[in-house]
Amino acid sequence: MVARFKNRAEGGRRLAAKLEHLGPMNPMVLALPRGGVPVGYEVARALGLPLDVFIVRKLGVPGHEELAMGAVASGGIRVLNSALIAELGIPKELVERVAEREMREIARRETRYRDGRPPADVHDHLAILVDDGLATGATMFAAVSAVRASGAKHIVVAVPISSPDTCSQMRQHADEVICAMTPEPLYAVGLWYEDFTQTTDEEVCALLAQTAGAADTAHTRRAAS
């Protein structure tokens, strides 16, 4: 029997142990809000890396929002499941309407979470994309596409839990994929956490502020030495 994670923080700590080989490469951690931020925070803290958010929103099929017809991400990146859209006969105007709504939510979160801080510059960097788990992987596929378009030189996808198929498919998109657990069947990501309470905007802001404060302190110490 595979042991479940107590919560996202524990998932992050257990995931960090599988990412230690990346430490010397000086990567940055990009967490997908909201649930990926507590995981990413623990990874960044354990490895002594900078943390930022990378905001991606699933495009749910109207009336069946749990079914992803694509996703949008920071920077105006859009990934569509054209086959599903054609199969369901979803009009282009409806896809556009859903995409515009989700882009407004991305803009709101960018303003709320960053508190005036500029987005991390991933150009020529190694980026570790972190979430609390992968089911269909639609949002993470969009995140990988967007980060690559931003000029990242190497992209690692890292999650505590994933379906085996999605973890395997992700390797066709990212340069490296680390899935701490890949149970079969997965059923749902939340089933593998004892506490899968929804992460709030306030928790995201607090974790990012703590990380920013720690980075400022480290910079001050280096400058004084």
Results as ranks from 00 to 15, higher is better:
L47V: 08
V98Q: 00
I128R: 00
N26W: 07
E105F: 13
K18C: 13
K18W: 10
M170N: 02
A83I: 11
R112I: 12
V147I: 14
M103A: 13
T111G: 09
P160W: 02
D121V: 08
E184V: 01
S150P: 06
D124F: 02
R109C: 06
V43F: 00
D195R: 11
I90C: 03
K58E: 01
G137I: 01
A218P: 12
D115G: 13
R104K: 15
Q169F: 12
N7R: 09
G75A: 12
I90V: 14
P38C: 09
K6V: 13
A143P: 01
L49E: 00
V39M: 03
R108V: 01
N81E: 13
T199M: 04
A71M: 05
I55D: 02
D216K: 15
F141S: 11
L67P: 05
T136F: 09
T200R: 05
V130P: 02
R57C: 06
V147Y: 07
A188W: 00
G137F: 00
R34I: 03
N7A: 09
E203Q: 14
D201H: 04
T136C: 11
A224F: 13
H125T: 12
T111R: 15
E176V: 05
A174E: 00
P183V: 04
P91I: 07
L22W: 12
T199G: 05
L207T: 04
P118V: 06
G48S: 13
M25T: 14
I90T: 10
A127I: 00
A17K: 15
E42H: 07
D131G: 10
V37T: 07
A138K: 02
T200D: 09
L49W: 02
E96W: 04
D132S: 06
A224C: 14
T200P: 08
D124I: 01
E110Y: 07
I77F: 15
D124E: 13
A83M: 14
R114N: 08
G60M: 09
